[in-house]
Every structure is written in structure tokens, then in C-alpha cells.
Design a protein around this nucleic acid. Structure first.
Lengths: 248, 248
DNA sequence: GAGTGGTCTAGACCACGAG
DNA sequence: TCGTGGTCTAGACCACTCA
């Protein structure tokens, strides 16, 4: 099955630029020549050249900034989302220390959140928006929702360490009984792409995590959006011989 | 933050077609008018119309078939990958019964597989290729690698039930001690897109699962590629009070 | 205002699928 | 062969950034 016997020009151009980036001929952070110049160099029209750049954007190798140019993206730190961790105070740890900016808002439950948190419409919630940055580059995005009476009194204390995101103290509450993590792959919304400064053609890992108390009450729902070019979610299941119950 | 004060034509067209599909004016499986006709109807040029269709392809709503036309995609059954299940005989269960075709090949370990399986170069492996179909539509793709001496003697017996994929019997072997599942989001390779009959702009959930025996030997590595428009990976962690160990 | 990317046009030519 | 989508062109005009 020959996929592409006559490589299209845009793929040839993308391959060439990709090679130049990987070999260091084009270094991280530098601006590429303007699209018009590149089009002349490769003797193609501007739309063709732009479609070549679109391929590289989808791979996270190039970042376009309107009015400024195309830039070789700096290789970003990898994110490892560690899932299924049975540690009640820290649910999620990113491997890299990042600067996390937090914004807390009081909202009322609407359609998707009511089912997620299992609360009635318009019930008071706290939304915490986390945006992790590496230097000046946005890195990951998290929206965390909790019933307002469970929210931490001091929002700024919610992230005691920049290495942690989504930290909840469970000291004075019933213990958690279940954490559910749903993962899917999709393209980002326009808003997510803007906030994360990624191309809309770069896939994201979308993660929804719901934590339930022993009472059956949902304590928190977290919606994470992690750029696919630098994220990996890791789940480790250890099986002891005596744990061989039919249902996990 | 006004993302798009002047909606581009392609988005307007995509919105219109998306609405027609969701309301049933365009039913699943039907062929759209040709691109030239649609371009005339919307009074845009063909490249513009094609870029509108590209948006819908990325959402999995439209399937392009070269030389035939654009078709409204039938809504496909959702796949729920259940991860972290401590059941040794069935590791992965898809919620929907699907027809799974299997092809077994004997290969030798090469670069990425040697590290994955922790075996020396050129050591004998068995590759099992699973392609799940729903009707005539490819649904999901799995490549499973195992040391050849651990492979099942009869490959056709490896999938006793079409509801199961990646079935390994552990009756006569040391029990598993660890299952590691790594998930990432990306765009499919050209080959994956062809096999799955999806657009190269539809994100896939890529899942790598490595199972290790008590001896430390890697029993199996599975590479799953699941189309993002219909797949969700679900991990459920239950915490018992006595399980509150500091490290999981 | 100069330079950059963003969008779109009108049409050419090629490749694939079916009769 | 005909109709379909696949690729590409040459150029127009708009929007954003920065001096």
C-alpha cells in the first residue's frame, strides 16, 4: 500500500523544515523567514507554504504569531500526569515544577456541571482555574469545581507548592472512596488553544476527574486540558496475589 | 476576549452543515452534494468550501472518500476502555461487542520494542494485530507484542470472545505484579488514519500498556490506537481507609 | 506605515472510482 | 469516460504588531 508515491510539496517542505529543526540548523526560539520569503525559496505559492507550516504546527514544532512571524518552538518540559494515586492529600503531581497561576470564582451549577457533581441546578460552586506556565509559555490548563461549602477558605493556600495542582486537604472531612478519571483525545477548542498558545490542530488530552466521598457526595470535579505534544498520563496498577478479587 | 468577531466563511459553512447533520436534515450515511455544488450554493470558492469540510472531518462528522464524495458519518458506538483492572485473564474490555480481526506475525525485536519489552535486540517476538470493526467501519486498532515463548500456541484461540481484546491466560505462569498504562493524545499517522478510515486531523488516544510478571519479566506490551471521537478511557480508583499508605 | 500572517478567489491540472 | 476529490497557483484584500 503506497501511501504517497508523489510526495506533495507541502510534505516535502515540512520534512525539510522539520529536519532543519531537529538537526539544530534552525534553533529553538528563532523566527523563520517570512512566509513570502519561504514561498519564494521553495518556489511554491503562499497557500502551499502555509499548509506546510500547518503540518509543523500540528506537531508542536512551530508556533505562529499573527503579525510577528513563525517561530521554532522551544522544546517544553514533559508533563507526566500520574493517575490513580491513592494518596488523599495530593491527587495529581506534575513531574516538572511550574509556575501555576490560580483564579478562583464563585459560580452556580449549570448543565454539564450538575450531572458531573451530582448537585441541583444553580447550587453554589467554586471554580478554580489553574494555568501552569513554564517561563512565559502556557503549559497546561485545569478547571476545578467543588461545592462552595467544601472549598478552601483561603484560595491562595490551595496550592502550597508549585509542584502540585489540585490540592485538597481531607483532614476534617470523610475520606474519599472513589476517584474516577476519564480521558479522551480531541482537538482543543478555540479558547483552549488561545490560552495554551497552541495550534488548534494540536491534539489535547482531556481529563475529567471526579472524586467522591464515603457519603456518596461528589467533593470535586476537575477538568484538565493537557497539550498532546508534551503530555503523558501514567497509570500503574500493582497486583498482589491476595488482591485477586474478581471485581476490582 | 472576542475570539472571532467576523466569523470566517468556512466556520459559517461548517456551522451550517453541522447543524443540518445534528438536526437530521442530513442523515447518517448520505452523500453530500459535490464540493463544486456546495461551493456554488454557499457562493465561495472550492478551497474555502474544502476547508469548511476539513473542520467537520476533524470532528468525525464527515468522511471524505476520494473519487466518491463526502459522506455524513454514521454515529459509531462509543468505546470505553476500562483501565487499571486487576483481573488477570481479561485486561481490557470494550463495552461494545465488535468484530475483531486478528493477524499474528512472528517478528524480531527492534529499537522501540526492545526497551518496551526489556529484551535484547532481535529476540523473537510475536506481534498480534487486532482491528476491531463495527459493521464495515474500522473501529479501533491494537498491536500487541509478547516474547514468542509466551505467545499462545493457537492464535485463533487468543480472542475467545469478540468483546475482549488482548486476552492472555495466566494460569500456568507467575502472576502479574504490575500493569503500566501510558496514555497520550496525538494526531494519527497516515497509516493509522488509513486503517481506521479517519481523517488525519481527528485526534487519537494512544495507549501503551506494559504488563510485568513477578519475575520482573515483561509479559506483553500493547499499543492501542483509539479514535478520539468515540473513545474514552476510564480509570476508577477505590480507596479503603486502611489503604492509606503514603506511597501507592 | 511597513511588515507580518489570515483569509479568500478563480481557475488549472492531477488522481481516484465507477460505469 | 466522466464525475469526484486532491493539489497547487498568483494574487487580492484584511487584520495584527511594532516602530
Amino acid at each position: 500500500m503506497v501511501i504517497r508515491p508523489v510526495p506533495s510539496r507541502r510534505h516535502a517542505i515540512a520534512d525539510d523544515l522539520r529536519h532543519q529543526i531537529s538537526t539544530g540548523h534552525l534553533k529553538a526560539g528563532v523566527r523563520l523567514p517570512s512566509e513570502a520569503q519561504l514561498a519564494t525559496r521553495y518556489t511554491v505559492s503562499t497557500p502551499t507554504l502555509r499548509s506546510a507550516l500547518a503540518l509543523l504546527q500540528g506537531e508542536g514544532l512551530v508556533e505562529k504569531i499573527h503579525g510577528k512571524g513563525n517561530f521554532v518552538r522551544r522544546p517544553l518540559r514533559r508533563i507526566t500526569y500520574l493517575g490513580g494515586v491513592a494518596e488523599p492529600t495530593t491527587w495529581t503531581t506534575f513531574s516538572a515544577p511550574l509556575r501555576v497561576t490560580t483564579r478562583t470564582t464563585n459560580i452556580e451549577a449549570t448543565s454539564p456541571l450538575t450531572t458531573l457533581l451530582n448537585v441541583p441546578l444553580c447550587s453554589p460552586l467554586t471554580e478554580v482555574l489553574h494555568i501552569a506556565h513554564e517561563g512565559t509559555t502556557p503549559h497546561s490548563l485545569a478547571r476545578i469545581y467543588a461545592p462552595r461549602d467544601l472549598a478552601p477558605a483561603d484560595p491562595s493556600a490551595a496550592t502550597p507548592s508549585p509542584e502540585q495542582i489540585a490540592v485538597r486537604s481531607a483532614d476534617h472531612r470523610p475520606p474519599l472512596v472513589e476517584v474516577q478519571e476519564r480521558l479522551s483525545a480531541r482537538l482543543p477548542t478555540q479558547e483552549e488553544a488561545t490560552v495554551l498558545r497552541i495550534s488548534t490542530s494540536l491534539a489535547v488530552l482531556s481529563l475529567t476527574r471526579v472524586a467522591t466521598e464515603a457519603t456518596g457526595r461528589v467533593v470535586e470535579a476537575a477538568l484538565l486540558v493537557l497539550p498532546g505534544d508534551r503530555t503523558e498520563a501514567l497509570f500503574i496498577t500493582r497486583l498482589n496475589a491476595e488482591e485477586r478479587t474478581p471485581n476490582a
